[in-house]
């Protein structure tokens, strides 16, 4: 469905608030690639996904996303799906209303499934006319994943996508990811659980520390030196 999908990160640095998280990250991804982001707690997996989605600015470096037939002016945010910890569902609306809204808001585009078909694919077709509030956590997550099918976009950025899913649903999710890749899409997933994907690349964020090891403060450096020293630095600023 997509041709010439290219996601290029060049010397990317990510800062969240005052906390430098990632530095010097350069990766080149093309259609069909899947990347598992791994790393210890606080290594910046979620922050990196938000930067990739265009919700936050990188502290340094560049990101480019190109898809054949899509104008180069299109903001990255309009070409990606973000699946976060939260499902973005309105409990007071039915599942059908929730999905219908996202279709109208995002635009269906070519290759889109209808809402009933997408829900059927994820095994919760029965929930179509139920209020989202009555669904279980796992069911909500599956509705959230259905959003990726009713409004197709070339890049999926997923944060712990299988966290709330049972084994069968996780397997179905894996199939959907493979289908997305075969259509020329890219998947970047932050995950602790191993993903059973073919030719999965792994990106360990611990190998892209924000600065070199010599920038760590020495033991002797304490508050006293902080107050008397002549060199002042302010963390969390891009140059």
């Amino acid at each position: 469905m997509w041709r010439g999908t290219h996601l290029t990160l060049n010397a990317l640095a990510v800062i969240r608030g005052e906390r430098p998280l990632i530095g010097g990250l350069s990766v080149d991804l093309s259609g069909g690639d899947a990347v598992a982001l791994v790393g210890p707690n606080g290594s910046g997996k979620t922050s990196l996904l938000r930067v990739l989605a265009g919700l936050a600015e990188p502290a340094a470096g560049t990101i480019s996303l190109q898809v054949d037939g899509v104008s180069a002016d299109t903001p990255r945010a309009a070409m990606v799906h973000l699946g976060g910890h939260l499902d973005g569902l309105k409990g007071a609306l039915t599942v059908a209303e929730n999905l219908a809204f996202w279709v109208r808001y995002f635009g269906a585009g070519p290759g889109a499934l209808s809402a009933p078909d997408a829900l059927e694919t994820l095994g919760i077709g029965h929930a179509l006319n139920l209020p989202a509030a009555v669904l279980s956590q796992g069911q909500k997550r599956r509705v959230a994943l259905a959003r990726l099918l009713v409004a197709p976009r070339p890049v999926w950025l997923l944060d712990e996508p299988t966290a709330a899913l049972d084994v069968a649903s996780a397997a179905r999710f894996t199939e959907l990811v493979e289908a997305h890749r075969s259509q020329g899409g890219i998947v970047v997933a932050a995950t602790h659980a191993p993903l059973a994907l073919q030719t999965l690349k792994t990106l360990d964020l611990a190998t892209y520390p924000p600065r070199g090891p010599d920038s760590e403060p020495g033991e002797a450096e304490g508050l006293a030196t902080a107050l008397s020293g002549d060199e002042y630095w302010l963390e969390g600023r891009s140059a």
Binding site: G222, L223, A226, L227, E235
Partner: peptide
């Protein structure tokens, strides 16, 4: 701010 920067650094160790 310098104190805070020091504390942030210390926490990152």
């Amino acid at each position: 701010r310098r104190v805070r920067a020091m504390q942030m650094r210390a926490a990152r160790r």
